[in-house]
Amino acid sequence: MTPAPRLPLAGPDQPAPALFDDPAAAVARIGEIYRNSVDFLRARFAAALAGGALEARYRATYPEVRLTTTSHAEIDSRLSFGHVTEPGTYATTLTRPDLFARYLETQIGLLIRNHGVPVEVRASDVPIPIHFAVADGEAAAMPRDGGAGFNLRDHFDVPRLEALNDDIVNGTAVRAPGAPRPLAPFTAPRIDYSLARLRHYTGTGPEDFQNFILFTNYQFYVDEFLAHARRMLGEADSGYVELVGPGGRIRAPDAPLPDPERLPQMPAWHLRRPGRDGITLINIGVGPSNAKTITDHVAVLRPHAWLMVGHCAGLRNSQRLGDYVLAHG
């Protein structure tokens, strides 16, 4: 039996690797590389679904940022981020710069300032799985049950579950000889996977999540949160501009909040402020497995704080913020 001929590899044109000492310019280049990759994959995938000829294996990669330092820089040791601990080359792949622009600019700015060296931005060698490229695209929807009419894996990269791990943040990653050290706790494919899971589990998009997150497993906390959200929308100086839920979004305090056809496993509501400085509430339901699952995925958003609101550790009226509380049976 004659083996099928190997298809040529086709990808988008990308800018050459470049050094940046301006964090805003670095983030802009990251965005350019990411858009080039995603636009290329979406266009090829849409053409394939429309019956176009598949003459290559189509591959586009994530942007990457690198930092190389040869000095043990003196840094503000009170910060647990924005610096590396020893000389070397560090790198990470990046995704969704539209969602993480402010975060990336802050982190890259700290790296440049703390180490006194520029960062390098380039296209990485890590492919973007087609599922993640079209997740938020309007050009094409991922077909199900083999409905594409062609072998997806022959022409596009797909998610590799062995790469969607927490080895870096868990401290168990094994680095190949000569490879750069990790510059971030999560890789781009791991982040993309969690962004897709957040939409699945909560019924809301990752772009609606706020920097301050509440978890609960009591419905009356949801009711109180929604009532509070409506009051805030009614106060002109509150800064809150929108309430988002699994069924839709409202801006007027007395507007009906649409219900979804089917409630997701862990529904979320977001009281939005500009700059993502609002509050998100997630009803995680019952069981520690739900709590672990949702926090694993929320973590990639790098929120400022999260807090579980429940009954098991209820405080007394006599207690004040800062009191030491000893749990006992």
Results as ranks from 00 to 15, higher is better:
residue 60 A to W: 08
residue 134 V to S: 03
residue 261 E to S: 09
residue 113 R to M: 03
residue 119 V to T: 03
residue 257 L to V: 02
residue 2 T to P: 15
residue 281 L to N: 00
residue 125 D to H: 12
residue 205 G to L: 15
residue 186 F to K: 05
residue 93 T to W: 12
residue 17 P to Q: 06
residue 69 T to D: 05
residue 32 E to L: 15
residue 319 Q to M: 12
residue 155 H to P: 12
residue 127 P to V: 05
residue 31 G to Y: 10
residue 307 L to M: 14
residue 30 I to L: 15
residue 7 L to H: 09
residue 278 G to K: 12
residue 239 G to C: 11
residue 85 T to E: 14
residue 111 L to K: 03
residue 32 E to W: 03
residue 294 I to H: 05
residue 77 S to L: 13
residue 98 D to C: 02
residue 79 L to C: 06
residue 92 T to M: 13
residue 85 T to G: 14
residue 62 Y to V: 04
residue 283 N to G: 03
residue 21 D to F: 06
residue 323 D to R: 05
residue 15 P to W: 08
residue 264 P to Q: 07
residue 160 R to T: 04
residue 253 P to K: 07
residue 93 T to R: 08
residue 145 D to F: 13
residue 184 A to D: 12
residue 115 H to K: 08
residue 45 F to G: 11
residue 298 V to Q: 03
residue 327 A to T: 07
residue 62 Y to E: 01
residue 207 E to R: 13
residue 55 E to S: 12
residue 42 R to L: 00
residue 90 Y to M: 02
residue 11 G to D: 07
residue 105 E to F: 06
residue 89 T to A: 12
residue 174 V to Y: 01
residue 188 A to G: 07
residue 208 D to I: 00
residue 168 I to A: 11
residue 206 P to W: 08
residue 107 Q to R: 13
residue 60 A to C: 08
residue 189 P to Y: 04
residue 201 Y to I: 10
residue 171 G to V: 05
residue 57 R to L: 10
residue 288 P to Q: 07
residue 238 S to A: 13
residue 23 P to K: 09
residue 319 Q to H: 13
residue 45 F to E: 10
residue 239 G to H: 12
residue 21 D to I: 02
residue 23 P to S: 09
residue 151 N to R: 15
residue 238 S to W: 11
residue 6 R to N: 04
residue 30 I to S: 06
residue 199 R to P: 00
residue 47 A to S: 14
residue 311 H to Q: 13
residue 225 F to W: 10
residue 245 G to R: 01
residue 328 H to F: 11
residue 75 I to A: 06
residue 143 P to G: 09
residue 65 V to K: 05
residue 261 E to L: 10
residue 240 Y to Q: 03
residue 46 A to H: 00
